[in-house]
């Protein structure tokens, strides 16, 4: 544990000097501030912000993570020549990469909403937005680590990351829509719901609409829907799935890292 915190410390030293993370945080800060100051309606601002987060955080996290892995190979080699076990190093690398992203994101949202004077008045949607952002960072960084340590070729790895992001963010929903339409004669709501829980971006979106669009969700009479969206079941299930979505790629990435030849 002490070792992991040391490794995280080095990573943080490293990333604080990287301009990327500052730019990333600044963009979120300015966006949040502008959105909440100039948008008369905080509900809409929060919707816009979340929509943005659903797109930007997965993209940034996955690209940032893959690049980070490729840029860290020498560092990893250096550290692995020291009396350090690989598991600690992996956790250290992972947290060292996600902490600044999460910290930058959370801080800029909180400051942005604080300066525009909206933080306390709409605390709940902001907390949900933060939670979604944190989970998406954790999930997509875990995925990127898996890709990075699995695919040796940088260009191939980066390409895979972008394709994966595009599939999760856009393509998946398009295909899902197509399937729902093709099978509309059949009871397909279970499938539609399950399909949303399988894609992490959809999952985060569902988590958000559970709070934000609940009135509309209640307009659909399907029993499964009503049970899922109408009770705390939806929150529990989607939250657990978010956790699962974090754990699985993380473990796969770690397993890969433990076996990898450097």
């Amino acid at each position: 544990m002490k070792l992991i915190s040391k490794l995280i410390k080095f990573e943080l030293q490293n990333s604080i000097r990287s301009k990327w993370i500052i730019v990333y945080s600044l963009i979120f800060f300015v966006l949040t501030f502008l959105l909440f100051s100039f948008e008369t309606d905080s509900a809409k601002a929060s919707l816009t912000l979340t929509n943005l987060i659903l797109i930007v955080i997965p993209l940034v996290s996955i690209i940032f993570g893959v690049m980070f892995v490729y840029n860290s190979i020498e560092y990893v080699q250096l550290v692995l020549c020291q009396p350090i076990d690989r598991k600690s190093l992996f956790i250290g690398l992972y947290l060292g990469n996600t902490f600044p992203l999460i910290f930058g994101f959370v801080l800029s949202i909180i400051l942005g909403t604080l300066f525009s004077g909206i933080l306390l008045s709409s605390l709940k949607p902001i907390l949900i937005t933060l939670l979604i952002g944190i989970f998406l960072t954790l999930i997509f960084t875990a995925i990127s680590f898996w890709i990075g340590f699995r695919i040796i070729d940088k260009a191939k790895g980066l390409g895979t990351a972008i394709i994966l992001w595009f599939s999760f963010a856009v393509l998946y929903d398009g295909i899902l829509l197509l399937i729902i339409y093709s099978f509309r004669e059949y009871p397909i709501e279970n499938f539609a719901l399950a399909a949303c829980l399988i894609n992490p971006i959809d999952l985060a979106r569902v988590f958000f609409i559970l709070d934000f669009n609940i009135a509309a969700l209640m307009g659909y009479t399907g029993a499964v829907f009503n049970k899922f969206f109408g009770s705390s079941l939806g929150i529990i299930v989607s939250f657990s799935m978010l956790v699962v979505w974090f754990i699985i790629p993380f473990l796969f990435g770690m397993r890969r890292f433990l076996k990898k030849d450097f």
């Binding site: 929509n51 899902l176 979106r205 569902v206 958000f208 609409i209 307009g219």
Partner: peptide, 9 residues
């Protein structure tokens, strides 16, 4: 059932 895609990009 397309309602599940609410707010999707």
């Amino acid at each position: 059932p397309t309602l599940v895609l609410l707010n999707s990009l």
